[in-house]
Design a protein around this nucleic acid. Structure first.
Lengths: 206, 206
DNA sequence: CTCGCAAACTGACATTTGTCACCAGTAGTG
DNA sequence: CACTACTGGTGACAAATGTCAGTTTGCGAG
């Protein structure tokens, strides 16, 4: 019997998923969580075999860790627990981050329930599984061309703040900020930072 | 027995929901759809009592109709079929649009399964239901302050295009575009069009 | 060590954008 | 009718932004 932890902030989806997975003879849901923090607490207490984590969980302000953050912690704290990320909008960058965090499976929510159950079994027995379509996108998308600083600044620029505010928040001079944004824009083939931010976001780079 | 149509592009969620709702004695899922077009075809053929529609369905380019569009068509074609919108991110503006389209229920996916089942029963017996939290947001958010044209132009500006491109796509002079964006920005309390677009989007105004 | 290189950073310059004042036509309303 | 709001437009000015040439720093290869 494979013991599961389910983490998703949408109660409706999570309980529905729990019901569905419980119908499988060899699967049982031992814990559920609606946030990253809750997920960790539950995992420590129940020690599940597989953690099924939603990529974006919290409605918290910002910087809060999502499914990938949870997986990262679980890998060190509970090495026997395999992590599986499930997500609505799969961005290539997220897939890379997830794999780097030791996640063993990555699925979009468009897959069928049978696939999910199969993947849970696969990763429980030590295997890995990544949705083929997402994998193809990730490969064709290539690596993140942005430097660390460029990505930082672009992220701060993403919500439309003026340069001066970005400069303050990044502790840089406005001129430097402009340069980073300019070079990021050049790399991404855009003529302004807002479009650049949009592109970077769709690739999961920020 | 209440006969249901389920429409959601995420197969996993949709089948899970179908399983969950089928467990209720008085509910039965007679049709499922993964897109707006499919949902309409299914509705015409199966004539369900209640249509449970996801707000954003298609991964299609743009302009494709989502759950609200389906509800609008259903109201005229199948007046006996009640529509219920379920959504991950509920924006105040969407709620208003939905109610204007004759939708009888509006729920975020954070509600529990029992609430969903109850709401289905409520709207099937002629009632209405709107998530209290969303309703409060919609009221406090107030009406869309933008004129039709301002909203149009702001929408075109939303993906970061430069003014000249917006002007071309809207068939306006660049100066006029700047004027509209400026006044939209003033109404929304922002200092640039990109932040304005972001605000308008969170309110569901564009 | 030093050469090369890339990232981090700055300031100057040109373009884009936001703002404002103003004009004209059209439609709806008391 | 007068009044108001929305649409579409022009031109000018100031501020924000994008672009570029160039300096500094740190680090690995030779």
């Amino acid at each position: 019997m494979i013991r599961l932890l389910l983490a998703d902030d949408e109660n409706l989806i999570r309980t529905a998923l729990a019901t569905l997975l419980s119908l499988e003879d060899d699967l049982t849901v031992v814990a559920q969580a609606a946030s990253a923090g809750e997920a960790l607490a539950m995992a420590r207490h129940h020690r599940p075999d597989v953690a099924v984590l939603d990529l974006q969980m919290p409605s918290l302000p910002t910087g809060a860790l999502g499914g990938i953050g949870v997986a990262e912690v679980l890998r060190t704290e509970l090495p026997d627990c395999a992590s599986l990320i499930v997500t609505g909008h799969g961005r290539p960058g997220h897939l890379k981050q997830a794999l780097a965090a030791g996640v063993r499976g990555f699925l979009p929510k468009t897959v069928s329930a049978e696939v999910l159950a199969d993947v849970i079994r696969t990763i429980h027995s030590g295997g890995r599984y990544v949705d083929p379509e997402l994998a193809a996108e990730a490969i064709s998308a290539g690596d993140n061309p942005l430097t660390a600083r460029e990505a930082d600044v672009l992220e701060l620029a993403a919500d439309g703040a003026p340069i001066d505010e970005i400069a303050q928040r990044a502790a840089l001079s406005p001129g430097t900020v402009r340069n980073y944004l300019s070079s990021a824009g050049a790399k991404l083939g855009t003529s302004n930072r807002h479009e650049a931010a949009r592109i970077a976001r769709t690739h999961g780079w920020i």
